[in-house]
Write a protein that binds this DNA or RNA. Structure first.
Length: 272
DNA sequence: CTGTTAACCTGAGTGC
DNA sequence: TGCACTCAGGTTAACA
């Protein structure tokens, strides 16, 4: 579930609880995530301390005081919470990091599309990270960048902006919402976007993501932030999950159809 | 190289 | 109730 705002909300929620407190125990209940978890982590992580909690795209990067970095991805259904050690683990609670203050960082992930691994090298050079495009909330991501980069691209603009090599953090919900607000048809060839359309789209992606972060992300099924509170952005979605309902702008029914196996919702009247 | 598709896995919801 | 079926927030690997 987690898109960028959810991951950022999680990072901010858990950071005060996990930084600068020694790790006392690591429990791995299920090591088969997207890639198998290195079981040695339950031996060589206790005694260490996390010194920084960063985010790159939807990857959480937790710096360990021995120079390693934990790379954590929540996949489609993952969530991290701070819990009391007395709270019994549920069926899909795969990982616990226990800290010296007594509380536990608990990873829950029913579909197990997430990833948890450690690297000794610069995380920016890691194979999962090095190909990623710019962060959407930085100045490196802007209308000119979108315009230049999209030239000669025949792929649908929605699929294109969801490609993490183009820009990170734009998942299915925010892709639908941003294209609606920018009045761009999701099936438009990326290379056919005008320069003004690219500027509009970049500005709106920034605004939508930033606003969602301030509201704690989008709660759909099972998302809870690091402090256990749900996000409130879902109530403000204009098109996602609203196929067939009237367009908030022109009242014509919203079209919903799959694009590359992802639900796509748009207004054929407002978006072109 | 670009672009599309299948695959990973479980649970919730729907229709019969 | 139960069963069969569809769909779900992401990403990579394997294709054409």
């Amino acid at each position: 579930m987690p898109e960028l705002p959810e991951v950022e909300t999680t990072r901010r929620g858990i950071a005060p609880h996990i930084l600068h407190h020694p790790i006392t125990a690591v429990t791995l209940r299920h090591t088969q995530l997207r890639w198998p978890i290195d079981k040695a982590l339950s031996r060589n992580l206790p005694g260490r301390t996390l010194v920084r909690a960063d985010r790159r795209g939807k990857y959480l990067l937790l710096a360990v005081d021995d120079g390693r970095t934990l790379i954590w991805h929540l996949g489609m259904s993952g969530s991290l919470r701070i819990v009391e050690p007395t709270e019994p683990p549920g069926k899909h609670d795969h990982i616990d990091l226990r800290f010296a203050h007594g509380r536990v960082l608990r990873y829950h992930d029913p579909r197990r599309f997430g990833a948890f691994l450690a690297t000794a090298d610069d995380p920016a050079q890691h194979a999962l990270i090095c190909h990623l495009g710019p962060e959407p909330l930085t100045d490196d991501f802007n209308g000119e960048y979108l315009y230049e980069r999209s030239r000669k691209r025949s792929t649908a603009v929605k699929s294109w902006i969801m490609d993490s090599r183009v820009v990170v953090g734009v998942g299915n919900i925010y892709a639908n919402e941003s294209l609606f607000l920018a009045k761009i048809h999701p099936l438009r060839a990326a290379g056919k976007l005008t320069r003004p359309a690219c500027h509009r789209l970049a500005d709106i992606i920034k605004a939508v993501l930033a606003r969602s972060i301030t509201q704690g992300g989008t709660t759909l099924r099972d998302f809870v932030g690091g402090d256990g509170k749900p996000g409130y952005f879902a109530q403000q979605l204009n098109v996602y999950g609203r196929g067939g309902e009237p367009c908030p702008v022109c009242s014509k029914p919203l079209t919903e159809k799959p694009l590359s196996q992802r639900t796509t919702v748009y207004c054929t009247h407002c978006q072109n």
